[in-house]
């Protein structure tokens, strides 16, 4: 039989009192750490982005895009329609990769800073063009911009669905600073890509 010493008794009481505090602090710190690791609540809506440069082929879930050329111009035309202003004209190849049913080039946006511009619906462009699976078509899209907007870096966004939350999209980065501004640019005629 062992006789408890007064010292060990006091230590046991101290441990008993401190343990819940230590556990609580550990849990709070753990929860804080988890909150730091956790993604934003809206992260589940983020699209899956395939990034590419001009001239580079990029594929996302059901869309494949290659931007072949980019022009800045003071006027744009398609042969019959013509408009002046500050224009960014993008020539591209586009196809669907899996399913042609209802597939179209629905989102053609340009992001400059925190502003987003949609491609013009005027003229004959690839906006809303139905896509063919595995067989790219070529054409152009055009963005009408405020006069001083052609500076800095920009991003082209291509998606097959208007609502591309959690969908695969293609983004192409552009540098607008070094672009020569042409007098007039003609939209490429829509046809099969070369």
């Amino acid at each position: 039989m062992t006789v408890p010493t007064p010292g060990s008794d006091a230590r046991r009481r101290l441990v008993k009192a401190a343990a819940p505090w230590a556990l609580s602090i550990a849990l709070v710190v753990g929860a804080w750490g988890l909150a730091q690791l956790q993604k934003d609540e809206d992260a589940r809506y983020d699209p899956f982005v395939t990034r590419a440069e001009v001239g580079e082929h990029a594929e996302a879930r059901n869309i494949a895009v290659t931007v072949t050329d980019v022009h800045a111009a003071r006027a744009v035309s398609d042969g019959s329609w013509r408009a002046e202003g500050t224009w960014l004209v993008v020539d591209l190849d586009a196809a669907s990769t899996r399913d042609q049913s209802g597939a179209a080039l629905r989102v053609t946006d340009l992001r400059i800073g925190d502003r987003t511009y949609s491609a013009t619906e005027r003229g004959t462009s690839m906006v809303q063009l139905p896509l063919v699976t595995g067989v790219p078509q070529h054409g152009s899209i055009a963005f009408e911009l405020p006069e001083d907007a052609l500076t800095g870096s920009a991003t082209l966004v291509f998606a097959e669905n208007d609502d591309y939350a959690a969908d695969g999209i293609v983004e192409v980065s552009l540098d607008l600073d070094d672009m020569a501004v042409e007098r007039e640019v003609r939209l490429d005629e829509i046809g099969w890509a070369e």
């Binding site: 399913d99 042609q100 049913s101 063919v132 699976t133 595995g134 078509q137």
Partner: peptide, 17 residues
């Protein structure tokens, strides 16, 4: 719709194009 059995790729007819 025309569907490739091996891959599941889907095509629709393209008269105009």
């Amino acid at each position: 719709r025309l569907i490739e059995q091996g891959t599941g790729r889907v095509w629709e007819s393209v008269r105009g194009q």
